[in-house]
C-alpha cells in the first residue's frame, strides 16, 4: 500500500536546516496494522501527517496505492487523501456546534455525495457504532470515550482504505482506550489498514508491527 524511500523532512532555521525526519524507508502492506512509537519530538506526528497527505513539503519518494505521490501535484494528493484516508486525532476534534450525526456527515459533504445517500451512510454507521440514541447530542454532551468513538466513526464514514490515528487513546482512561483499540482491531480484521501513533506499549501491541523513531531517524 505504501512505500517510502529516503523520505526526509526539514524546516529552515537561522542556523540552517533542521531535520524532522531523516532517510525514512518503510513499506506498509494492504490491511496492515502498524504502530509508530518514539519519544516526544521524534517525528511521529510529522510522519503521520506526510502519510496522510496533509504535508507536502518533504523530499524522497512516496508511493501510495501504486501512485507516485512525490510526482503528484498538491490537488491530486488532496484527492487521494479524500478518497482513501481517514484520520483520528488525540483530541477528537469534533465540531462543537454540530450534532453527532452532523459531525459524521461532514466528511461525506466534502465528497460530492447526494444528501439521501449521505443520510443512509450516517444512519448505518450510527447503528454499527451503537450511537443511534445519541445522534442528536452535541459533543459537549458526550464523555471522552464517546467523543472518540464518534471521531473513529467519522474517520470511517467515507470508507477509507487507511486510517491514521494520532494517539487516539491519549485523552481516554484505560477502559475507554481498550474499547477504541478493540474497535481498531475489528476494523483492521475487516480489511482497513491502520497506522497508529502511541506511547502506550499495551496499545502498541495491537499492531502487527512496531516501528520506532528517534530524532527523526527510524530505528533499525
Amino acid at each position: 500500500m505504501i512505500q517510502l524511500r529516503n523520505l526526509e523532512k526539514h524546516i529552515d532555521t537561522k542556523a540552517g536546516p533542521l531535520y524532522l525526519l531523516r532517510q525514512i524507508n518503510l513499506d506498509i502492506g494492504d490491511g496492515e496494522f502498524l504502530t509508530i512509537m518514539g519519544p516526544s519530538g521524534a517525528g511521529k506526528s510529522t510522519l503521520l501527517s506526510i502519510l496522510g497527505l496533509y504535508d507536502h513539503a518533504w523530499d524522497g519518494e512516496f508511493h501510495f496505492l501504486d501512485q507516485a505521490v512525490h510526482k503528484l501535484p498538491v490537488k491530486q494528493r488532496a484527492a487521494l487523501n479524500k478518497r482513501h484516508i481517514g484520520f483520528v486525532f488525540q483530541q477528537f476534534h469534533l465540531l462543537d456546534d454540530l450534532t453527532v450525526a452532523e459531525n459524521l456527515d461532514i466528511p461525506l459533504s466534502y465528497r460530492d455525495i447526494k444528501k439521501p445517500e449521505r443520510q443512509a451512510i450516517v444512519a448505518d454507521l450510527l447503528d454499527r457504532f451503537g450511537m443511534v440514541a445519541k445522534k442528536d447530542l452535541f459533543p459537549s454532551q458526550l464523555s471522552g470515550g464517546q467523543q472518540q468513538l464518534v471521531a473513529v466513526a467519522r474517520a470511517l464514514v467515507a470508507k477509507p482504505a487507511l486510517i491514521l490515528a494520532d494517539e487516539p487513546t491519549g485523552n481516554l482512561h484505560t477502559d475507554q482506550g481498550r474499547e477504541i483499540m478493540e474497535l481498531f482491531k475489528k476494523l483492521n480484521a475487516q480489511g482497513t489498514a491502520i497506522i497508529q501513533v502511541t506511547h502506550n506499549e499495551a496499545w502498541a501491541a495491537y499492531g502487527h508491527r512496531i516501528i520506532r523513531l528517534r530524532d527523526g531517524w527510524m530505528e533499525k
Binding site: Y54, A78, N81, K82, F87, F89, H93, L94, L95, D96, I106, P107, Y110, R111, R154, A158
Partner: peptide, 11 residues
C-alpha cells in the same frame, strides 16, 4: 474548526 474541516476533506 476550519482545520478539522480541511483535515476531513474540505477544499
Amino acid at each position: 474548526e476550519l482545520a478539522i474541516r480541511l483535515a476531513l476533506g474540505a477544499s
